[in-house]
């Protein structure tokens, strides 16, 4: 699909969509959002790119094969559970560490956040894998 208009639009839209999906992911705890929706958003962003520039182009941007992303995502989710274990409380127990970032005030990063990013990555790579294989194959 080599319509120039689509290409120029995608070149502009892709980063925007991805940034927005990350925003949705990060604010998941308090406002509507979270790993799943973020992942889906990112997938649609990449799909847009695939439509405009073709599937091989997407593989080029992703550099690593998608299956590794799945592994990374799952790994993250798993690792985020470990601190809970070390603390002696049950696996995946939320651990929070707060530190102040100049300018924004108190910032609390916690294991659930890591878990959420893990979810985000997995969902993203899973959907993308299926879609791209379908697209490539058709």
């Amino acid at each position: 699909m080599n319509s120039i208009i689509l290409r120029t639009a995608t070149r502009f839209m892709l980063p925007l969509l991805i940034i927005f999906s990350i925003i949705v992911l990060l604010r998941g705890h308090n406002q509507p959002g979270g790993g799943f929706v973020g992942g889906l958003l990112a997938t649609s962003a990449f799909m847009l790119y695939a439509m405009a520039f073709g599937v091989p182009a997407v593989y080029r941007i992703l550099r690593l094969p998608l299956t590794t992303y799945i592994a990374v995502g799952l790994g993250m989710a798993l690792v985020s559970g470990l601190p809970g274990l070390i603390e002696g409380s049950p696996f995946l127990y939320g651990q929070w560490v707060g530190f102040t970032v100049t300018g924004f005030g108190e910032l609390k990063i916690g294991t659930p956040l890591l878990f959420d990013i893990g979810v985000y990555l997995t969902v993203l790579s899973v959907c993308l894998l299926i879609l791209l294989t379908l697209a490539e194959d058709s």
Partner: peptide, 16 residues
């Protein structure tokens, strides 16, 4: 934000 997302993704469907 729901509207924002809808707006973005909607066009993807038609593009497909």
């Amino acid at each position: 934000s729901v509207c924002l997302i809808m707006g973005l993704i909607l066009f993807l469907g038609t593009a497909a």
